[in-house]
């Protein structure tokens, strides 16, 4: 474990990614304590609307006079919840499907993978829009739409890995020894596909945060006064260019967060899976 951290630490960018992800987690957890005006998540002060960044309001105020820094911090909570639940449920659906389909070839497996392909035959954002629109705008529906569009990626990755593992000597050996197939699958195959799953998850978090923000921006996600980042940017548009801070800070928050997950994902891939290491000596 410490060797792993050491290796990660050696890759400065990946380590920065880890720090960003940790910071996101912390601000999500401690938002009520960190935010200068935690009540501004629902409180409004129209008399102080659209004030530029100042000592009282480091990120300025929004069109309802609420403190933007506080709202961005609380936005981290929403983002963490959306991304974790969406990627988590996509993982719970996609990984078993990939495992089973890869391990037991047959028409049912073929059908499952074809189904995954159908989902992948649409640009994900387009599919997410169609589903979110169908379900109606709300955070649970965004999560549902994102999981529905993301599970095939896990299924595909795991399927490919299991397929190639199946022919490896140790898997054939366990089977020859009469170990039950389920045991083989869980104790011998699954640990060996853990790496691509972890890497996929980290990158998937970044992707999911971006797509969730896009849905929020299009009005298909959280509803006011929820301080969801994408929705804040959509609301901020009409106050440009005067209130530049209003659109800038939530966008920066998205950028930094996704960057964190992407850097971490890249680093994890290098550390955990030397085969995929970037072409760097």
């Amino acid at each position: 474990m410490s060797a792993f951290l050491k290796q990660l630490y050696a890759d400065r960018l990946a380590f920065a990614g880890l720090l960003i992800v940790l910071a996101l987690g912390l601000s999500a957890l401690l938002a009520p304590a960190l935010a200068p005006y935690p009540e501004d998540v629902y409180d409004i002060h129209p008399a102080q609307r659209l004030q530029p960044p100042s000592r009282q309001h480091p990120f300025g105020t929004n069109h309802m006079g609420a403190d933007l820094l506080s709202r961005v911090l609380f936005g981290a909570r929403i983002t963490v919840v959306i991304a974790t639940v969406a990627v988590g449920s996509a993982l719970l659906v996609g990984v078993p499907i990939g495992l089973v389909a890869g391990f037991y070839p047959g028409w049912a497996s073929e059908l499952l993978m074809r189904l995954a392909d159908v989902f992948l035959s649409l640009p994900q954002a387009v599919l997410a829009i169609a589903i979110a629109q169908t379900l109606g705008p709300s955070i649970p529906n965004v999560i549902l739409a994102l999981s529905i569009t993301y599970w095939p990626w896990f299924a595909r990755v795991v399927f490919a890995e299991v397929r190639s593992l199946k022919n490896e000597v140790f898997v054939e050996a366990t089977q020859a020894l009469g170990v039950s197939p389920w045991r083989t699958l869980l104790l011998h195959v699954l640990p060996n596909v853990a790496t691509p799953i972890i890497v996929r998850s980290s990158i998937g978090m970044g992707y999911t945060i971006l797509t969730a923000a896009m849905l929020g921006f299009l009005g298909l996600g959280a509803q006011p006064p929820t301080p969801e980042w994408g929705r804040e940017i959509a609301e901020a548009r009409q106050y440009l260019p005067e209130a530049w801070w209003y659109a800038t800070f939530p966008g920066l928050a998205i950028f930094v967060t996704v960057m964190g997950f992407n850097l971490l994902g890249d680093g994890l891939r290098d550390v955990l899976d030397p085969r995929l290491r970037r072409g760097r000596p």
């Binding site: 629902y42 409180d43 409004i44 129209p46 069109h63 309802m64 705008p137 009005g219 509803q223 006011p224 006064p225 609301e235 009409q238």
Partner: peptide, 29 residues
């Protein structure tokens, strides 16, 4: 109304007032 920010602003203003009366107002554009 989706696409008409003023209607949303009004909903938020009412939401904030009702909160002070202990009434929760959910906004569903």
């Amino acid at each position: 109304l989706v696409g008409y920010p003023v209607t949303q602003d009004a909903a938020v203003v009412l939401q904030s007032g009702l909160r002070k009366l202990g009434i929760e107002l959910k906004i569903k554009p």
